[in-house]
Design a protein around this nucleic acid. Sequence first.
RNA 1: GGAGAGAUGGCAGAGUGGUCGAAUGCGGCGGUCUUGAAAACCGUUGUACCGAAAGGUACCGGGGGUUCGAAUCCCUCUCUCUCCGCCA
Length: 423
Amino acid sequence: MLTLNQIRKNPEELIKKLSVRNKDFSALIYELIKIDDKRKELKGKSDKLLAESNKLAKSIGMLFKEGKKEEAENAKKRAVEIKEEVKNVNTELSETENKLKEILYEIPNIPHDSVPEGKSDEDNEEIRKGGEIPVLQKKVPHWELAAKFDLIDFELGNKITGAGFPVYKGKGAKLQRALINFFLEEAENAGFTEIMPPLVINEDSGFGTGQLPDKEGQMYQITEDKLFLIPTAEVPVTNIFRNVILKESDFPIKLTAYSSCFRREAGSYGKDVRGLNRLHQFDKVEIVQIQHPDKSYETLDEMVAYVESLVQKLELPYRIVKLCGGDLGFTSALTYDFEVYSAGQDKWLEVSSVSNFESFQANRLKLRFKKEGEKQTQPAHTLNGSALALPRILAALLENNYSEEGIKIPKVLQKFLNFDIIK
RNA sequence: GGAGAGAUGGCAGAGUGGUCGAAUGCGGCGGUCUUGAAAACCGUUGUACCGAAAGGUACCGGGGGUUCGAAUCCCUCUCUCUCCGCCA
């Protein structure tokens, strides 16, 4: 979330910047400022009354000690009056604060200056392309290949759980494991520390990274215990730093985590959900960085370059797009999406999303740092990216490397496998 | 699942109704001493909000209550530990 200071500093400019998201926030912002004015006023009033009440309470103690009972009783009467007043003011104050929060949670992150205007993914800006789109003897979608070579059983998943929970078998399962190992090894070489996080999170964690209060419908819930299955390792890993004050010298913090991810994907339908294209459970290796505000965009570039190196090593044709305002996620200031070309379907598939959240998540998380010798804390910047999401990578690998001989395994994965072709 | 104990500042740990934002020890930071370091000694050491400032307010696991006054009493939730049971 944005802070009130951020918002009040220059509301006009903020509204203008937010308008890149293709939405007008002026009414919300001005209402927010009005409510904040009221909050300040009430807080002042309440503090004054409490100060008086505290003073009085202390004096009553003294009076009793000195045996001045009558005076004490009089003071008590006054105290009761003040208390009644405090109660009224505080009721109004907490109502005001709640309203304030409600609106604050509705305001998305400020898009970075470089974010292009636009309504949907069609307006995203292509940054670069790489790799070569293979010329195939025959275009076969991965779900057919998966069946032909007995790699993934979608029907079995239906039986055990439901749609979107595939069962990987034999070489299909091994390929998954190879990808996980490859991604984790690469991340380690790039200086990321491996984390194995819980796959279930509580409400506070969901709030910290921005899934709650609004997007609980996208998560599987364990209502009995008020817990949620993670939609991405970003949530547990970033929440390591909830309520933490770092030293400047702690930056950059670089973490990576492999996890299964669970998403309800309510509202998805049609050809987008065919095969591995959109699942309720999938595997992903995530990278997370906590960085000094002055360096977070450098870090974002570095993370993009890192993810790019992964798709290059996997020999997949890819493109990198910068998300336009209309497509940009609620919590993000700048996001690059990676897409790989899956030749059997003739389709670009999103396999990674690398974002700088600046201080938006940090404000929610209360993740701050202090400069050497300074008293004032300030929010750190958080960033993360998929490196990478497995199912669509697998889809592209199967489709792009298929020929009459079988499915060839890219070189970088071979050391994790005891086969180099699937026949 | 059953029985019990507990949750206090970076950590350890005191405090059971008033002057407690909280003793003390350790750690951290600054200083004295020293060629340098250690030791010793002295000082300092939480976060957030309101306020131009002075200053004020809140926070002793979370929420609610009693009281003029709560870290301390009551209710409730969560978590941790110990024992028993079950179990990877």
